[in-house]
Design a protein around this nucleic acid. Structure first.
Lengths: 328, 328
DNA sequence: TTGTATGCGTTATCAT
DNA sequence: ATGATAACGCATACAA
């Protein structure tokens, strides 16, 4: 900038104004533009940030970037965020509490203008870090009622019910369930949802028909194998699509036909569900929609920090595919 | 900082020194620490960056964050980069030249300390932006010989050969090929590799046995369907795993058995290949290894910009699974 | 050891 | 319209 101003024979103030499109005489504008082009001037993002108190960065923190559900969410967020001139900084937290709270605390350094975080567990430490954060944060997922933070949530309880209802309507009664860890927010909600839905249909939940692993493919496959070794379900509900793909493998490798022998329903409605064969029915929890909403909430709050905390809900819906008897 | 210094009754220089662990008398250290804790002082990342001329950020630019091969690469990069105290900023370029070169030019703003980019096409504009970049860049993928930029590359030509050799050894002779766009670097290399390998075995490449789509699932599926509508291969090589999963779908939906009727080999050896049923044999192009190497090259260059440009190669290897007759 | 003063690259304020 | 100058928050030469 200094160089540009000197070369154009004006003050650095004038140069700055011209380069930012604010006023200037025709002659000044011309000379500054010319000088800038000549020396290949490019504004320094850091210095600009120091002055503007904004970095133009928005962080997204999710457990596992390999899970397609987060890819879908990320794409939706990226679209909104890019439109506002921000860039997305992605953190993979691995789902551990220490890492997530450390991340939240680091927000105090103001290296980003805001953060969207989807914690899989919510602890006291989370809440403390969340409320103490000097930069706006939006939480995707459940959150205690009294935490004054913008929040968008799915309804996975109802989502599981959708799956169970669908299977019961199709005549299935021996319905198994492969879940993720019960000490996670989604794990607990999906467990409760499954039991409530089964009870509503007057179906008993046999312990042998329920397995818990991780929200991952390998764990889902192993959990399904354990379940199939001791029970004969005519349908299996899985707590997400990664688990469902693992369960599909366990079913097919043991010679079971899907959906003829065992119907299968996953959750999150990711690309994986469509890419499997047979294609897997899945409960959409509106991941893209949640991402879009979260991004909007965040941008709104960045623009006006005095807003009252908002809470958005996204309704689940069932996408029926081959694995539960839908068309190919 | 100003506040901390005032509260501790010292100059901001002393406060800064103490907080950075440089000297100070026991008494000064104590008072500054106390004051900092009392006001909850946290250093401002931007101001620190302006001073240090480093942002602590490293960018990764890939075409499609939904492709598991990039997820694997990203994980490897993240591990190396985190260890050095940097954070990863992920860009999805969508593979368009304008976006990629714009990204490279934006490096001049110095919003990151370095970038790892994996362009799917390499144009004049890329080369120009690459060589003009004031911040270190490492290219993952092919690059003209004379471009003085750190570079790590796979050998997908040999990779395809590995697949063809394997299939021929298993007695397959009518080998089809589903590729990505020929005007991309990997697309062109894999096409050449396929033809060379087939020629080496004295096998003709019938035009009807070759299809081109996109490096995506849906396009791969459609391309495979077109191929299968007009030819009867006893094996198919796919230019990546997304295509392979699409081809698997096309095969199964038309009643073909894999591998009995048609053997299938993918490329990139991503999680997808393991998650399919049957599991898909795949040529590993060492994506994690390439990511790790790229990160190391970048960190080295950030530490010392005068290094002579390096070029690393990662050898391909074939992972045999069920889809080509391997064990379950 | 400590404080003063300056610089990092911009933008904004305030005279002129 | 323009220029001098003060922030922005921190780190560091240099002097004391």
């Amino acid at each position: 900038m200094h160089t540009v101003a000197a070369r154009a024979g004006v003050s650095i103030a004038s140069a700055s104004r011209v380069l930012n499109g604010l006023g200037g005489s025709a002659e000044t504008v011309r000379r500054v533009r010319e000088a800038a082009a000549a020396v290949g001037y490019v504004p320094n993002a850091i210095a600009r940030s120091l002055q503007s108190q904004r970095t133009g960065l928005i962080a997204l923190a999710v457990e596992d970037i390999g899970n397609p559900v987060y890819v879908a969410m990320m794409r939706a967020i990226e679209a909104v965020v890019a439109e506002s001139g921000h860039q997305l900084l992605v953190h993979a937290t691995g789902g551990n509490v220490a890492g997530e709270t450390a991340l939240l605390r680091r927000l105090a350094h103001r290296y980003v203008d805001g953060m969207i975080i989807s914690p899989i567990r919510v602890t006291e430490a989370h809440v403390a870090a969340l409320t103490a954060s000097p930069v706006p944060v939006v939480v995707v997922g459940q959150l205690p009622e009294d935490v004054p933070v913008d929040n968008v949530r799915a309804d996975s309880r109802t989502g599981v019910a959708l799956a169970v209802d669908h299977l019961v309507a199709a005549g299935r009664t021996r319905i198994g369930f492969v879940n993720g860890p019960l000490d996670t927010v989604p794990g607990a909600a999906r467990d409760a949802g499954f039991r409530a839905a089964m009870a509503r249909h007057g179906l008993a939940v046999e312990p042998a028909m329920v397995e818990v692993g991780d929200f991952q493919y390998a764990a889902g496959r192993a959990a399904a194998q354990r379940l199939l070794a001791r029970a004969e379900p005519d349908a299996i509900v899985c707590a997400n699509d990664l688990i469902a793909v693992g369960a599909l493998h366990a079913l097919l490798v043991t010679g079971r036909r899907v959906p003829e022998d065992v119907a299968l329903v996953g959750m999150d409605d990711t690309e994986l569900a469509q890419m499997s064969f047979p294609q897997i029915s899945s409960v959409s929890l509106g991941s893209a929609e949640r991402g879009k909403l979260a991004a909007r909430l965040l941008l709104d709050r960045i623009a006006d920090g005095t807003l009252v905390p908002r809470r958005e809900h996204v309704a689940p819906s069932l996408v029926v595919r081959t694995s539960s008897g839908g068309v190919q």
